[in-house]
């Protein structure tokens, strides 16, 4: 079974330690099992609980941004549903490759 890691008990996301889908083992602060709703890559985050629009996404016990849409447990959390409180440009990057989409190549 693939694994993910929750750093702090207050965290509402965990980081994938393997690429995974289906059931995953949540290690770290509060060990549990979680059903992934989609395939999630190594190093990427999954929601451990429901996160409402505008609510803080918490990792390391501290906010790392806010949900831009309703996020359900087991969903992949990334640029498509979580925004920085500082950096606006990151919202324009390609969600899979991180490549820029706003620089003109002319």
């Amino acid at each position: 079974m693939s694994r993910c890691f929750q750093v702090n008990a207050r965290d509402n996301v965990a980081t994938m330690l393997d690429e995974g889908q289906g059931e995953v083992d949540v290690l770290g602060a509060m060990p549990q099992r979680l059903e992934l709703r989609e395939r999630v890559a190594l190093g990427h985050k999954v929601a451990l609980k429901e996160i409402r629009t505008g609510e803080a996404v918490v990792k390391f016990g501290l906010p790392i941004g806010r949900a831009t849409t309703e996020i359900r447990p087991g969903q992949w959390v990334h640029l498509h549903n979580c925004a920085s409180n500082f950096d606006a440009r990151s919202q324009t990057l390609d969600v899979h490759s991180g490549a820029t989409t706003d620089t003109p190549y002319e």
Partner: peptide, 28 residues
């Protein structure tokens, strides 16, 4: 400085690797 130059210290490879925001990268 970051606000003035409109640039945060986070690159495409960071996002591809699963980091979503500069705050997350900062804590790590």
């Amino acid at each position: 400085y970051c606000r003035a130059v409109r640039q945060y210290s986070v690159a495409p490879g960071n996002f591809a690797g699963g980091l979503t925001t500069i705050e997350e990268k900062s804590l790590g």
